[in-house]
Simulated scan of single mutants.
Amino acid sequence: MRPLLPLLRLSAAVAVGAVLATATAGCFSNRQNEGATLYQNHCSSCHGEQGEGLRRLIPPVAASDYVARNRAALPCLIRRGMKGDVVVNGIHYNQVMPGHEDLTDSQITNLLNFVQRSWGNQNEPYTVREVSELLQPCHGSDGQ
């Protein structure tokens, strides 16, 4: 009877691991595509379905030198918006971009990470902590 005890413990451990893996996968799967969804809902109407922008009116975020060079400013730009001249890929743009006060720090992180890795952008992903810290200068962090 003694040799069955380790086997039962192993079986129980495997069962618990499977339950945790399933539960954990469910937690992450709900947010897995959040960045793409947030982009679609908040950005695509101006910046385009594929980040291509709108002629010389709205700058692209696809293959964008601005996205690559302005990492520290992007969280505040999303939170507070911007107005005034901006140069993207050598072209001047001067339109108002509305801010998105309704997004949490983690949503801004997911949105930025989607843009950072889509349409030819190969930039380093953000962490939520980094975005929260970068939002401090514009008093934009909600701590979420």
Rank of each mutant, 00 (worst) to 15 (best):
E49P: 09
H92D: 12
V128T: 11
L54K: 13
P6A: 12
V128C: 00
Q116C: 04
H42D: 10
Q50E: 15
G120H: 07
L112P: 13
Q107R: 03
G35M: 06
D142V: 10
Q95G: 02
P60T: 15
E130V: 05
T127P: 04
Y39A: 08
D102N: 14
I58C: 10
D85N: 08
A25R: 06
D85I: 09
L135M: 04
A72T: 05
Q122F: 00
Q116I: 03
R69S: 12
E130M: 10
R56G: 07
C27Y: 09
N30F: 14
A23E: 09
G48I: 05
E124M: 07
N121E: 03
S45G: 04
G120P: 12
V61E: 14
L57F: 15
L4K: 04
Q116K: 03
C138K: 01
N30V: 13
E101R: 15
L111C: 04
P59D: 04
L112Q: 08
R56F: 09
E130W: 07
Q122T: 08
Y93E: 00
M97E: 03
I78V: 14
L54A: 12
S45V: 12
A12G: 01
P6E: 08
T24N: 05
I91Q: 09
Y126D: 01
A68V: 08
T24W: 03
L57Q: 13
N89G: 06
Y126N: 04
V16E: 00
W119V: 09
S44A: 14
Q144G: 11
V96S: 10
L4D: 01
C43M: 06
R55H: 09
V67W: 00
E52S: 13
L112V: 07
P3E: 08
S45T: 15
R129W: 05
A12I: 03
L77F: 06
N33L: 07
D85L: 15
H92E: 13
C76W: 05
G35C: 04
T104P: 04
I58F: 15
N33I: 01
T37S: 13
R80W: 02
N123A: 09
V131P: 02
Q122K: 06
T37R: 13
T109R: 10
Q136F: 00
I108W: 10
H100K: 12
Y126W: 02
